[in-house]
């Protein structure tokens, strides 16, 4: 387990040790341990079926772990109960609201579940849904529903927010709007526990990232650390309509093809790029849209697991 250095010295808001959960013979969460510091954005990354939603649902009090220790708000708990739920906010991946209630009715309903909290109207302003207060939930778009989910998660003024795929299925504009809200929440000192399979989201927002696969944490660190530790050196990407088998021999194991788009992983950019260009000139092969790209978390995941995150 790595040491989250963001708020070093400040007691963590959440600490998980050796968490386990099985469904029959399937081990969904297999000895997961991590620490979340207060006031940070912590991202749990992994492909579908990696065990991240089960992990989060245990931490939200929706499922019971089979084994492991959870320390939340400085207290060790067997399971997350009402006391802890009053201090956390939740956006579920597959959560929904009564479609025949109006937006303000849903907010007032959820507000009644908490002893203390924020003004629902102010939260609607914050997420940009003030003009939809009287609309039925079923008439909202996907992005508006996600923003409503976020407003509801903030109703009890939570210290820790669990956001499970909060931008899944949203267009880039709606996604950036939510990113902006999350950044402002972090600036207010809120802690955000984010699960996502959007790499650019994790890279843009996270202070600390855990990568999960097959129920285990396989790497963790800041996004920059992970890329420098596990990422390949550089990528040269280009498109070519020509057969590439001779090139595959030349760069064995380092060339990936996605349709016409080729991606070449290079250790020594000068030497490998020169070799590629020479080969293309000799074979009279056109290399269109050639770009040199630095590796990202997606590449880290690929190099660690051999699979793409969204597979």
């Amino acid at each position: 387990m790595g040491v989250n250095p963001v708020n070093f010295g400040v007691p963590p808001i959440l600490r998980v040790r050796d968490l386990r959960k099985a469904y029959g013979q399937i081990l969904a969460v297999n000895g997961v341990s991590f620490t979340v510091d207060a006031g940070t954005i912590f991202s749990l990354l992994g492909p579908n079926g990696a065990g991240k939603t089960t992990t989060v649902e245990i931490l939200e009090g929706l499922r019971l772990p089979d084994a492991g220790e959870i320390e939340l708000f400085g207290e060790e708990v067997q399971r997350v109960g009402r006391t802890q739920k009053a201090r956390i906010g939740v956006v579920l991946q597959d959560g929904a609201f009564e479609p025949l209630l109006r937006v303000h009715e849903v907010l007032n309903l959820f507000r009644s579940f908490f002893q203390k909290g924020q003004d629902p109207a102010a939260l609607l302003e914050l997420v940009g849904l003030a003009d939809k207060a009287r609309a039925l939930v079923k008439t909202l778009s996907g992005g508006q529903k996600q923003r409503l989910a976020l407003a509801i998660a903030l109703l009890n003024d939570p210290e820790l927010l669990f956001l499970d795929e909060p931008t899944a299925g949203l267009d880039p504009q709606a996604r950036r709007h939510i990113w902006g809200i999350l950044e402002s929440l972090r600036a207010q000192g809120k802690t955000i526990f984010l699960t996502t399979h959007y790499m650019e989201e994790a890279e843009a927002l996270s202070d600390w990232v855990c990568i999960m696969d097959h129920g285990k944490i396989i790497a963790e660190g800041t996004p920059r650390e992970l890329v420098s530790r596990f990422g390949p050196a550089t990528f040269v990407e280009f498109e070519t309509p020509t057969a590439i088998s001779p090139l595959s021999t030349c760069f064995a194991g380092r060339l990936r093809q996605d349709g016409e788009r080729m991606s070449l992983e290079v250790e020594d950019l000068g030497r490998d790029l020169s070799a590629l260009l020479s080969w293309a000139a000799e074979q009279n092969v056109p290399l269109r849209n050639l770009v040199i790209r630095q590796p990202n978390l997606e590449d880290v995941f690929l190099s660690l697991t051999g699979r793409r995150l969204r597979d």
Binding site: G61, R82, K85, F114
Partner: peptide
């Protein structure tokens, strides 16, 4: 319906029993 679409789960992620 509430169970299937996740409404019930969302309620139970609050202090509501």
């Amino acid at each position: 319906f509430a169970k299937e679409v996740g409404i019930l789960k969302r309620y139970l992620a609050t202090p509501l029993l």
